[in-house]
Nucleic acid binder design. Structure first.
Lengths: 222, 222
DNA sequence: CAGCCTCCCTACCAAATGGTAGAGAGGCAC
DNA sequence: GTGCCTCTCTACCATTTGGTAGGGAGGCTG
């Protein structure tokens, strides 16, 4: 092999993980065979099983990789979460962007939540609860200051919004069919994301008018 | 067979559909074998295939049955949707109740949306768009009257809220793990449902205080 | 009684599945 | 060179899958 194949193992492993992610997300774990994945990578099934001892280990690795990526994003998110209202958009937007960047991440999470609720619950506890706790604190502080609706249930709110972000991106291919046709799918998707952010924000913060005379903030639409 | 088995076919068919619904929802279509379903019903696989010509036909029947149930609910929903704000809760509650009554319905829909976005999109167009259109009209009227936020995107809003209701019930088994432990799952679930309704409502309607202050539109109650 | 229909069964099949055995090719250290 | 390690392959295996063939038991109608 050429010299630039200095780490062929990692390269193949990465490609396997990438294809497995795609196919698990699109067709589900049970709907994807090892031969399918191997074929997409360009190798044979036993070669794949050389890199991953079993199909289930591959699944765990896929999930792990995705959550590792998510973890990389966390610090930035936590920093934003502790800031003022203008930064609330940043948290939502950052999170949405993470899943929009690769919707397979969202699909994978939803599938896993349906297939293995217990396992997924443990991952949620580990990966999202710390961040959620920070946001909850921020919400409670906002409630004390009168910026946030008093009847918000912080934990439940955060759970719902996370769920909303993930699942609406996971199913955005057919969610758009709620609206009458005639709108380009790509534009409809943008409207959905914008509305998602609006819902998240306006169900948390009191309207500007009710708080003070502040120029209406532009919506998050990027 | 005894005389009270006047319609044994329908009886077995129904039981098959019930078990298939449960198992498809819990383990997915590909994760459920015909033998599993037959076993749960108490018959053998070929007997099952006597009632349903193929596994895929069974899947379609399961989906069809669920959507038929949903259709039974529609008139009541549409009636509520055309009423005043107090009735908005009724629409959300009615819909939520439909899925809470049997969360398998929600799980089934989410799975289907992930596995067959195209097919699911068609069903969405057929089953939820008409109802969504009515709600959208209602929202637009509310916007004219100043009861509803002007920057709500009706179609996107409805899509997001529907998505929120369904998917948060579909994944409620692990969504609760966002919050710290120590709360009974059943109570946490109630909090989630309550928060879901609150989010839906408060992201749509201006707060009461802000509305009294700005009654620009004619009070064209319905 | 015969004939038919409904419903369920055992036995079977071809295909696909996850996984193993074992060999071969290339690179690298000695 | 020899040996070793990494990586891929072909060939194979046991199991499970969706689905079929065909028969049998019970009931209904004539």
């Amino acid at each position: 092999m050429p010299a630039d194949w200095s780490a062929p193992q990692d390269d193949v492993r990465t490609r396997i993980l990438r294809e497995a992610t795609r196919m698990f997300a699109a067709r589900g774990f049970n709907g994807t065979s090892l031969s399918d994945i191997a074929g997409a990578v360009g190798i044979r099934k036993p070669s794949l099983l050389y890199h991953f001892p079993s199909k289930d280990e591959l699944r765990k690795s896929v999930l792990e990789l995705m959550l590792a990526r998510w973890n990389e994003l966390l610090p930035r998110l936590l920093r934003a979460a502790t800031s003022a209202k203008g930064q609330f958009d940043a948290v939502v937007h950052e999170t949405v962007a993470f899943f929009v960047e690769d919707p397979d991440r969202a699909r994978l999470l939803v599938r896993e939540a349906l297939n293995r609720p217990g396992e997924m619950g443990a991952l949620v506890s580990k990966y999202v609860r710390p961040w959620a706790a920070v946001v909850c604190d921020y919400i409670r502080k906002g409630q004390e200051q009168g910026r946030v609706y008093a009847d918000v249930d912080p934990e439940a709110y955060v759970a719902q919004i996370i769920n909303l972000m993930i699942s609406s991106i996971a199913t955005y291919e057919c969610i758009g069919d709620v609206a009458p046709p005639g709108v380009a799918a790509t534009e409809m998707r943008a409207r959905h994301i914008r509305e998602l952010c609006r819902v998240a924000k306006s169900s948390l913060f009191l309207p500007d008018a009710a708080r003070e005379e502040e120029p209406a903030g532009a919506t998050k639409g990027s």
